[in-house]
Write a protein that binds this DNA or RNA. Structure first.
Length: 475
RNA sequence: GGUGCGGUGGCGAAGAGGCUAACGCUGCGGACUGCAAAUCCGCCAUGCGCCGGUUCAAAUCCGGCCCGCACCUCCA
């Protein structure tokens, strides 16, 4: 996997055999999540699923930033208490993340519930002399941490040269950042040795990751805009206090762009997951997010999601056809396997291997998906060969199993969309309509039969005539 | 100004020294079908931003240039 810290792909070795500890920076809960927020969720959820597939026991921690300037500002606008606002959007977060099949973390720590740990952490830094208090604020002294800049590849001189931060004369160094902010009127605050106040942005991840994963853990992940300053500062805090490497592998996903520009809240060009779900299913969104390598930028546009929709549908169709083929049970009892099935049987393992090789190479989901397409084509071809022997049926059953298993590593729902068919009423009506159409076709009254097909299509019901009779499905 | 990422067919996107440059979408031709749909088969980059260099061999390595994006301030 590619490690931002070294700038190279490295072989992954976990700290403890068979176990992986992983911390992912979660959202600040003051709004619904947008697609840009969803990308790391889906990408790192996939990393987790893959590690679990390989047999690791993954301890996955993802925080909620529920104490923050933006929450306070928005709560004033909406005239609700900050913690109520945060609480509400945590619930909304789960709704979107669950839809995208993002597995819940083992622990979802919140800043508001970890004040003791945070304050103790800061006290430790002050005692070690790498943080200092000024009038109720506490700052981290970057000049006291020799490795400052190692993650983002910049030096303190670089930072000063291009400094856009207004200089605060009370700081020893302009790059020093706040660990603790003195309370302002009307803001939530907690008691501390420096008076009432609240934590700075970066300290929470250092304190909470330490509590749940220890001074050193395996993987720390987040969006690439967090490399600097957020993760750089986390390293300074954690390594400054514990003198041990914070995380061994740092993973960063690329941005979602809109017209090649970063999707962000400040530019206002963001799309909420919730709104996109009006047009596309969560599975399609997930598929789309995984169709590009996680470190590359990914441009958002309706036609690109539409293309993803068609692609995913292709994968789903293969599975559906395979199931139907097996359900039809047109097995003939013979012993001689044809060559093509022998070949296909070998291919199944080949696809699995190719898929895993792709994932093993820095989570190349785009390539892994390509393998699924090859697999799908193979399935489509083999089942078009018609009747099968019982031995051949076994091969198809195992193909179905592997196919679902690999899709599952990506968290893709391949077998969905068919059962949702409907109520007894719909089924009953469809039975009636289809029998009328069947009669019309038998009488070669194609005008009527096509009218039925076209009308149903406009209602979102697709009819497909096959040698075994008509088949219908939604969408 | 500093730091980093990237430019591959109509679109999206893999590939990172050597088989005909994957895969998906679109388009075109064919098979199947009453016609469709789905599926299958075939076609669509003598070329991978531009110019040089290294090499028997370069999208892939090196140098220069052009263009785009991001970070250096809250953002995933």
């Amino acid at each position: 996997m590619y490690n931002t810290l070294t700038g190279e792909k490295e072989v992954f070795n976990s700290l403890e055999p068979g176990r992986v500890s992983m911390y992912v920076c979660g959202p600040t809960t003051y709004n619904y999540i947008h697609l840009g927020n969803a990308r790391p969720l889906v990408v790192f959820d996939t990393v987790r699923r893959f590690l679990e597939y390989l047999g690791y026991e993954v301890k996955y921690v993802q925080n909620f930033t529920d104490v923050d300037d933006k929450i306070i500002r928005k709560s004033k606008e909406e005239n609700v208490k900050p913690h109520e606002l945060a609480e509400r959007f945590i619930r909304e977060y789960y709704q979107d993340a669950d839809a995208l099949r993002v597995k819940r973390a083992n622990i979802h720590p919140r800043v508001s519930e970890h004040m003791d740990e945070i304050i103790k952490f800061i006290m430790g830094l002050v005692e070690k002399g790498i943080a200092y208090e000024v009038e109720g604020d506490v700052y981290f002294s970057v000049s006291r941490f020799a490795d400052y800049g190692k993650l983002s590849g910049r030096s303190l001189e670089d930072l000063q040269a291009g400094a856009r931060v207004e200089v605060d004369a009370r700081k020893d160094n302009p790059a020093d950042f706040a660990l603790w902010k003195k309370v302002k009127v009307g803001e939530p605050s907690w008691e501390s040795p420096w008076g009432y106040g609240r934590p700075g942005w970066h300290i929470e991840c250092s304190a909470m990751s330490h509590k749940y994963l220890g001074a050193t853990f395996d993987i720390h992940a987040g969006g690439c805009d967090l490399v600097f300053p957020h993760h750089e500062n986390e390293i300074a805090q954690s390594e400054g206090l514990y003198d041990a490497p914070m995380a061994r592998y740092w993973l960063h996903n690329g941005f979602i762009t809109v017209n090649q520009e970063k999707m962000s809240k400040s530019l206002g060009n963001f799309f909420l997951v919730r709104d996109i779900l009006q047009k596309f299913s969560a599975s399609v969104i997930r598929f789309y997010l995984l169709s590009t390598h996680y470190r590359s930028p990914l441009d958002f546009a309706d036609d690109k999601l539409e293309s993803a929709r068609k692609g995913l549908e292709r994968l789903q169709t293969s599975y559906r056809l395979l199931q139907e083929h097996l359900d039809q049970g047109n097995i003939i009892v013979e012993t001689n396997q044809t060559d093509i099935f022998v070949e296909f049987d070998k291919d199944i393992n080949g696809y699995r291997k190719q898929f895993l090789d792709a994932m093993n190479d820095d989570f190349n989901t785009a390539l892994a998906i390509a393998v699924l397409f090859d697999f799908a084509r193979s399935i489509n071809t083999i089942i078009s060969k018609g009747r099968i022997t019982s031995k051949e049926q076994q091969i198809l059953v195992s193909a179905a199993k592997v196919y679902i298993e690999l899709a599952g590593v990506l968290g893709l729902e391949i077998e969905e969309a068919q059962v949702e068919g409907g109520s007894d009423l719909v089924d009953g009506l469809m039975e009636l309509v289809l029998s009328i159409r069947k009669e019309a076709r038998e009488k070669k009254d194609y005008q009527t039969s096509d009218k039925i097909r076209d009308t149903l299509k406009n209602l979102g019901l697709i009819l497909e005539d096959t040698p075994q009779g008509v088949r219908w499905r939604r969408q």
